[in-house]
Computed example of a mutant assay.
Amino acid sequence: MKTIVFAITEFGPGGAETQILRLGQSLVARGWKVHVLSLLEPVGFLEEANAAGIVVSSLKMTRGQPTLRDFQNALEFVRRVKPHALVGFLFHANLLVSLLRLFAGVPRVIISLRGEDYNPRRLMIQRTLLGLRLADVLVTNSKRLSKRLVESGVEGSRIHVVPNLPPPMKHLSSRNLSGAFRWIAVGNILPAKDYANLLHAAKLLESSETPWAIQIAGAFYDAAERRRVEDLIQVLGLEKGVEVLGARSDVEELMHASNGFVLSSREEGLPNALIEAMICGTPVVCTDVGGTGELVSDGLSGMLVSKENSEALATAMNHLMTLDQREREELAKRAYLKVTELCEPEKVIGTWEALIE
């Protein structure tokens, strides 16, 4: 039985972390021994990982204060576990797994970028890791991100685009929902999600002839951003139309109970929430960031608008609300066909296995 270790800054609810959990569950089912090494204390997913047979360990590092002892602990962990492959998710974990190869001689090291973090210094460091063969390949989850990495100087042959692994969710081809048009937005309350964009769009929607309601489901990891979102709801007078639900474990049910899904982000990789909405059959409106344009063709499988443009977002949302049910179902049907083709589970897992073998 081969062993793989996924390293992540902080294991818990989040896009990259969700992918590690789903990949780990699938790899365990295929006979792999899967470990997750969280640099900081994990903040979630422990029950799910344990149920799947995934072993979660932590270096218990202090945020922003790495020490030599932390690296020694990581080195001791790798020498004890003896993985065939080390996979880093996001910058700090990428740096760690690459340095571990230098000292522990791990056969296969993969680094992964999941979003639009184009900090020049970080890109230079990761480009150097590949150049020095401290990492074998770099995995990203969209063609747009891959193109930008090549433009930044990363060798194209070392980049592999692997879409996100979707969850098993029920597809509803039609739904009969009465009352106001229900919107659902899913994503942790973070600056990159740009909920201010959505709230300003909601304010513009007050002139719409169609009654609506918006629910936002996502964990509060950034206290300052939480205050900004809650304050803006009050300033714009949206208390009756917008509800912030916090972290939820029933996203599938929320999708099925909604007429439309909206994503207002300014930065993304390939959003899990967008994939989930398309699988569930919920018509989508989203900003053109990261890999969203690889899933959504404007007017064919959803509505795609420029980022940080509340007027465009409001116009697209209003357009979706004015479509009749048959037209929305046609959009959702084409979206479902697209997402199941791009993110076909066996193909995604097979690609990952080929990379880590």
Rank of each mutant, 00 (worst) to 15 (best):
Gly156Val: 12
Gly156Met: 15
Asn318Ala: 09
Leu331His: 13
Leu172Gly: 04
Thr67Lys: 12
Ala223Met: 12
Val109Thr: 11
Arg122Asn: 01
Phe181Val: 07
Glu267Gln: 12
Leu320Phe: 07
Pro107Val: 08
Arg158Phe: 08
Ile184Glu: 02
Pro191Phe: 04
Lys33Glu: 12
Val106Asp: 01
Leu337Trp: 07
Gly218Ile: 07
Pro13His: 08
Thr3Glu: 00
Ser157Lys: 12
Ile159His: 00
Ala316Cys: 15
Leu40Pro: 00
Gln65His: 14
Leu320Arg: 04
Gly281Trp: 10
Val285Arg: 05
Gly299Trp: 08
Leu236Cys: 09
Ser178Asp: 13
Gln25His: 09
Ile275Asn: 00
Phe89Asp: 02
Glu252Leu: 11
Leu342Lys: 15
Arg22Asp: 01
Thr282Arg: 02
Ile275Trp: 00
Ser98Tyr: 05
Glu341Ile: 11
Ala104Asp: 03
Val235Pro: 01
Val150Ile: 13
Arg227Lys: 14
Arg108Pro: 05
Leu130Asp: 01
Leu68Lys: 13
Ala49Phe: 02
Thr62Met: 07
Lys60Asp: 14
Val97Met: 05
Tyr118Glu: 10
Gly15Asn: 01
Glu230Arg: 10
Leu75Gly: 00
Lys147Asp: 15
Ala104Asn: 04
Pro167Gly: 08
Gly293Ala: 05
Tyr221Lys: 14
Ala354Met: 11
Glu330Asp: 09
Pro167Ala: 10
Ser112Gln: 08
Gly237Ser: 07
Gly281Ala: 11
Gln72Ser: 12
Ala217Thr: 09
Leu245Val: 10
Leu145Lys: 00
Gly105His: 11
Leu99Trp: 12
Gly156Thr: 13
Pro13Arg: 13
Thr322Ser: 14
Pro13Thr: 10
Pro163Ile: 08
Val87Ser: 00
Leu245Gln: 11
Glu311Met: 12
Pro168Thr: 15
Leu232Asn: 03
Gly115Phe: 04
Lys338Glu: 12
Val28His: 03
Ala74Asn: 00
Leu177Arg: 13
Met169Glu: 09
His171Gln: 09
Ser207Pro: 03
Glu239Phe: 07
Leu304Asn: 03
Leu190Ala: 07
Thr210His: 10
Glu357Gly: 11
Phe6Gly: 00
Met317Lys: 05
Ile111Ser: 00
Arg30Asp: 11
Glu276Pro: 04
Pro163Lys: 06
Gln325Thr: 12
Asn73Phe: 01
Lys333Pro: 02
Val229Asp: 01
Leu100Asp: 02
Leu138Arg: 04
Ala49Asp: 04
Ala185Arg: 09
Trp183Ile: 03
